[in-house]
Simulated scan of single mutants.
Amino acid sequence: MYHSVDDGAEDPYDITVPPARLERQLAWLGRRGLTGVGVGELLRAHAAGRSRGLVGLTFDDGYADFTEHALPLLRRHACTATVFVLPGRLGGDNAWDADGPRKPLLDADGIRAVAAAGMEIGSHGLLHERLTTVGDAVLHEETHRSRALLHDLTGTPPAGFCYPYGAVDSRAVRAVRAAGYAYACAVDPGPLTGPHALPRIHVGARDTALRLRAKQLLHPLRRPALPEDV
Rank of each mutant, 00 (worst) to 15 (best):
G118C: 05
D61Q: 08
P101K: 04
R31M: 01
T58C: 12
T193K: 10
L210G: 01
A78V: 06
P191R: 13
I111P: 07
A20W: 01
P220R: 12
G56S: 10
T208A: 09
A148N: 10
P164D: 01
L29T: 08
L149N: 03
A172L: 05
E23K: 00
D229I: 00
D99C: 04
A45V: 06
G155L: 03
L57N: 03
G8M: 02
L217N: 00
G92F: 02
V176E: 03
A81H: 08
P164L: 01
G194Q: 11
V134C: 13
A159M: 12
R52L: 09
A70V: 09
G122I: 02
P189A: 12
L90M: 05
Q216A: 15
A186F: 08
L22S: 09
E129S: 14
R50F: 04
H219A: 15
V17E: 12
D107I: 07
H140L: 09
P19D: 11
N94T: 08
C162E: 00
D107H: 04
A175I: 07
S123I: 06
G92P: 01
H124C: 08
V17W: 04
G53S: 11
G166C: 10
V138H: 00
L192N: 11
R145L: 15
A159N: 08
L71T: 01
G92L: 04
P158E: 05
A167L: 03
V176K: 07
Y165R: 11
R177N: 04
A115G: 09
T67L: 15
G91E: 02
F161Q: 12
A175F: 06
P72W: 05
F84L: 14
R213L: 15
D99A: 15
H196V: 11
A47C: 05
L150C: 11
A137E: 15
I15A: 14
W96P: 06
R211L: 15
S123K: 09
F84D: 13
V39K: 07
A159P: 01
P104G: 10
D14M: 04
L43P: 10
R174W: 01
Y63L: 01
R147N: 11
T16Y: 03
G91L: 03
H140A: 15
G204Y: 03
L217W: 14
G92A: 12
A64C: 02
E142G: 11
G92K: 07
G62C: 04
G135F: 03
V17I: 14
P224H: 13
V187Y: 08
A113E: 14
E129Q: 14
L218G: 13
G49N: 08
R75C: 00
R102H: 12
A186P: 04
R112V: 03
I201D: 02
E142L: 08
F59I: 01
D109L: 04
T80C: 06
L29S: 07
L106T: 10
T132R: 09
G118R: 05
F161H: 13
G100R: 09
E129G: 03
A186V: 05
R130A: 13
H202V: 12
L139I: 08
L29Y: 10
A48E: 15
L43I: 14
G91F: 01
E129N: 05
G155E: 05
L106V: 07
Y165K: 00
H69K: 00
